[in-house]
Simulated scan of single mutants.
Amino acid sequence: MRDTRESRLLLVLLIAIAFALITVDIRGGENSPLDSARRAAASAFGPVENGVASAVDPIGNAIGAVRDSDARHNRIADLERENAALKARLGSDDRTRGRAAELDKMLKTAGAGRYGIKGAEVIAIGAAQGFSWTVTIDAGSDDGIARDMTVLNGDGLVGRVTTVSPSTSTVLLANDPDFTVGTRMEKTAELGFATGQGDRPLRLQLLNSKAKVRKGDRLITFGSRADRPFVPGVPVGEVIRVDPLGNDLTRTLQVRPFVGFTKLDIVGIVVQPPRKDPRDTVLPPPAKPKPTPTVTVTATPSAGGSADPSGSASPSAAGATPAGGGATPAPSPTRS
């Protein structure tokens, strides 16, 4: 349609009629004269609207599903992140509980020996100062740590401090080949020197070559002059092998250390030695030996004779040997 003066007048007229019909319909309410026309229009256009809605609804549902899938995907991602965080927290809690138990065990050991200790954490391993078996701890001179202090944990002797910086220290472990500590045997008090052998047991030389030693005997540190580098009474290890006696002036033993040097975490540096030697009091109570099962055999008499306790069957009446040692001949059959 061309934009002319007549078309504009027609448009204005149609708009005015529409407003007039709306006004009449509103004022008429339920008795509106246009109600019949509305119902007729609904009857005519209702099927068309339903058809259009049926055609459009799948598209709308698909769009809604895509929108909802994004929301579900985001929720799944959130749940996965929460699950990962929960697992990490649980793992951290397990580690925290383990370290707390380790710290508690170390404090009990220090309390039994009346050692004043400074707790530290192993932060590095390796030959920092040219040693083959060393660890670095996160405590140094600023924490009161000095060279030649005894290092222990809840199990026993870890080593001694060799190098100190303001915030860290290097500890030479007791299994290092350059490590030697004076020891005292539990109960017998026999003295000796234990030397590290790397990943093998400690090598112990007793001063008394005739000392009576057996597998399972335990030893502690003898202590040094002025308690440097070793305080007395720290558990060292347990004898696992006794070498045969020789012509040497000393006796050699193999000792399994109480400390696991490959899994060190929390350690304590003895900054205050005990006022008196704790002797064997730091050692835990010895393990009770397991009972050895015994088998009792009960002999059952046979039909021809009974079994004696030694396991040999007693002779029967028919084939018994008389006291004189001669054999009794069997009776000859007789004819009737």
Rank of each mutant, 00 (worst) to 15 (best):
S209P: 13
R67Y: 13
F193R: 05
F131D: 14
P284N: 12
R89I: 07
N208Q: 14
L253A: 02
S141W: 12
P289W: 00
A120M: 12
N83A: 14
N50C: 01
A146I: 07
V48N: 15
A320W: 09
K118C: 07
R95K: 12
S165W: 03
D308S: 09
Q272W: 04
I240K: 07
L86F: 12
D104E: 14
A112Y: 10
T250K: 01
D199S: 11
G126W: 04
D93N: 15
A20W: 05
K290R: 06
T296D: 03
R8V: 13
V267Y: 00
Y115C: 04
L86T: 11
E121L: 15
A189E: 04
P257I: 03
L283C: 08
V242H: 02
R38E: 00
A307T: 12
V239P: 01
F222R: 15
T334E: 13
V259N: 08
L157E: 14
S54K: 10
P201C: 01
D94A: 14
W133R: 14
K215M: 00
G140K: 08
R72N: 04
T109Q: 10
K290Q: 08
V48Y: 10
V122W: 02
P285D: 12
G98P: 07
F258H: 02
K118S: 11
Q272H: 14
I220E: 00
A110F: 01
A42S: 03
S165F: 01
D248F: 00
L152Y: 04
L253W: 03
T250V: 01
L79F: 12
A71R: 11
R225H: 15
L9R: 13
D78L: 13
A18T: 09
E82L: 13
T262Y: 13
L10M: 11
P293K: 08
T183Q: 06
T294P: 01
R8N: 05
A44S: 05
A65P: 00
T23Q: 05
L191I: 04
L249M: 06
T328S: 08
N31G: 09
T250I: 03
S69H: 15
G246N: 00
D143L: 04
R184K: 05
T195K: 09
S165H: 07
S314I: 12
L152S: 05
K118T: 14
D308Y: 11
H73T: 13
A85H: 12
R147V: 05
R203G: 09
T296A: 03
E49D: 08
P58F: 01
V24P: 05
A174I: 08
V24N: 08
S7G: 10
T321A: 07
T188E: 06
P201K: 02
A303V: 12
G326A: 07
A317I: 14
G46T: 09
L11H: 07
P293V: 06
I117S: 01
R279L: 03
D94S: 10
D176Y: 02
A120F: 06
L173E: 06
V135H: 02
A327D: 14
G130P: 06
A317E: 15
A323C: 00
G304A: 08
I137R: 05
R5A: 11
N175H: 15
D308K: 02
V234I: 15
T328L: 10
P331M: 00
T162Y: 01
I145L: 04
S209M: 00
